[in-house]
Design a protein around this nucleic acid. Structure first.
Lengths: 356, 356
DNA sequence: CCATGCCTGGAGAGCGCTCTCCCAAACAAC
DNA sequence: GTTGTTTGGGAGAGCGCTCTCCAGGCATGG
């Protein structure tokens, strides 16, 4: 009997090919291919014969051969790029994978790509060697395109991928100006959200913790910009400001200065969660109630926001939407590689918690 | 001048091929290939000419064409398989990536594969659809082999990969008996380590928190086995035992029973960290000092162990060694696909902290 | 001096597949 | 009956590469 489902081909031991399927079905290779790919209609008899032969031979298409002619692989790389020029940084990647922020964006990216029926391949670019391996992989055409998530500003990966001349879409605008498609979150909109929220709660004596040297981090400085702009539009002319270095410690120092100069403040916006956590510490140490006396809003909706007391109201980057846009942009670039780079800017969301 | 480093080929716009390189260098395609792959010696003149042509054309080998003839891709999948038959479990994967345990094993696996100069491709198999995508990818020969990390016992992935007839190496022995290579950690050795440690610290009135229904989880029951065996060898004939369900709550209940029956106990081994954390809670509530009155050893060296008070001494699975063995085994299977499945069992390590 | 062996380059087959081109058959219209 | 039109199958080229086979050059040994 030849009812064995995984019968190997005639004489050799290797996996069966389309040729084998065609022979068993009594049709030409072209017809077998048409049934497998569904590119052109085929008579019911031929279809049935090929389908049976497919099952009998246990045929699996050879992706390499297919890619060679179609110039498509059906796979997309999701590259997580982190610091590291050397080789020995065992901590780096473990931490990246463990960071909820990256875990979320990665998961969302993988999900979004699957909807397009492509294989998402996660790759870690955490050392010079790894980066070169990734570039080699992408450059050799092993994937149709790349989704890039960078962890730091001076990452060489975006430039490397751009010069590999293959479709790429990045998360967040690259600092250096380059022909790269990207999806970003509007810092300005985020700042506006924070302002609107505080003022609607009746807080009109506002303070802000900004970032030192904001020019070097435009996306973060934008948050402060949006906050001021919205406050002004709502009639709050003056917003006191002190700057910090994005750490909790820096937030503590800035908050002390802010409260010393403006003791009557009843609403504070910090441009990231870590500094907001510092603000909460200072408010507690000064005997103020949160949110009774002062309401506090952070930014990023990181794990920090969940672990403060009280839990921090924060501005969230909507990962699922971001990943969805990234995937869409990439698929479009793959479809027409010559097109100019495109960008999408997504509005963030306010997540209200106990601090407001 | 033709000094532009990325000059595209003659008439068409596509990337340059070996043919282009050969033409520019004035040699045959075969010779150009020999220089690129280094498979056979070539005269210095030919070498120089090809090297120059390589730079001038900006040649990048086409991986699909190469794979088609060599039947190698130079890539290996690292599959993380988690529960989930349906589609909607947004939590599942995010949590997997965030779990330090999987973060560590994944990172170690990626590192180990890089040493073999293969491209590690992380893939998430967290839904039925995802699993089928992975099988399709692996089955189509897009990778040379697969490293599998499962999160639960009744995972269909091992069987699916085995029937795809491609090289696979799993972490931990599959529960169902199948022809699958694997690397595992010896639970017996781990139990012995715990016993040796406690007895060397002078603790001879020992108790153990085992697992209920140990037959269903042989690898965990082994830990208890090893503990008893080593204790006996060291002259401790009796080890009191209560069983729990591997949760902290279960550990609390079991520890209460244990202490009620044997108030003089001065050393306790729990077969996992979560239950050990419960033991610490009970000891504190009963007014006993740790490690002064009772020393406690857990198992897994999970993040739980770091967050207990006092920090928990635990048995660690040596991820780097495990991943190294997995990579070695896989490379060997790829080299000789016909060989019988192989297994490696590695000894765990004791990590001493404040609880002993 | 010729015979022998070694070394390097070129020619060309062929990996498994898709897709264009062409032909045969079936059917419609005149 | 002839011609035009559609529809599906087969033949075969060719994607870019590796690798075997063979020819020719050169050094060595008799």
């Amino acid at each position: 009997m030849s009812s064995a489902p995984e019968k190997s081909r005639g004489r050799e031991g290797g996996p069966s090919t389309l040729e084998d399927v065609a022979r068993v079905a009594g049709v030409s290779r072209a017809t077998a291919s048409r049934v497998v790919t569904g590119t052109r209609p085929v008579t019911p008899e031929a279809f049935a014969a090929v389908t049976a032969a497919l099952a009998e031979t246990g045929y699996v298409p050879n992706q390499a051969a297919r890619s060679l002619v179609t110039r498509r692989t059906g796979a997309v790389a999701v590259v997580v790029s982190s610091a590291g020029g050397g080789e020995d940084e065992d901590q780096a990647v473990g931490q990246i994978l463990s960071d909820p922020f990256f875990g979320n964006i990665l998961t969302a990216a993988v999900r979004a790509l699957r909807k397009h029926d492509v294989h998402p391949l996660l790759m870690l670019a955490d050392s010079q060697h790894a980066r070169e391996q990734v570039i080699g992989f992408v450059g050799a055409g092993s994937v149709d395109g790349t989704l890039l998530v960078s962890t730091h500003n001076d990452d060489p990966m975006p430039a490397m991928l751009v010069s590999a001349r293959r479709p790429v879409v990045a998360f967040a605008r690259p600092v250096a100006n380059m022909a790269l498609s990207y999806v970003d979150v509007s810092g300005v909109d985020g700042g506006r959200l924070a302002s609107a929220h505080l003022i609607e709660l009746g807080r009109t004596v506002l303070g802000m913790i900004g970032v030192e040297g904001g020019l070097a981090m435009p996306s973060i400085a934008d948050r402060a910009l949006g906050f001021r702009e919205d406050a002004a539009r709502r009639g709050v002319a003056y917003v006191a400001q002190e700057d910090g270095d994005l750490t909790t410690e820096g937030g503590v120092l800035a908050a002390r200065r802010l409260l010393a100069a403006h003791p009557g403040i009843n609403g504070i916006f910090a441009v990231n969660d870590a500094m907001a956590a510092g603000v909460l510490d200072v408010l507690r140490e000064s005997g103020r109630e949160v949110p009774g006396d002062v309401a506090v809003v952070g930014f990023d909706d990181s794990s920090v926001a969940l672990n403060t007391i009280p839990a921090l109201t924060s501005i969230r980057q909507p990962m699922t939407a971001i990943a969805g846009h990234m995937a869409d942009l990439l698929m479009r670039r793959i479809a027409e590689p010559g097109a100019a780079p495109m960008s999408v800017v997504v509005p963030p969301e306010l997540v209200a918690r106990a601090s407001t």
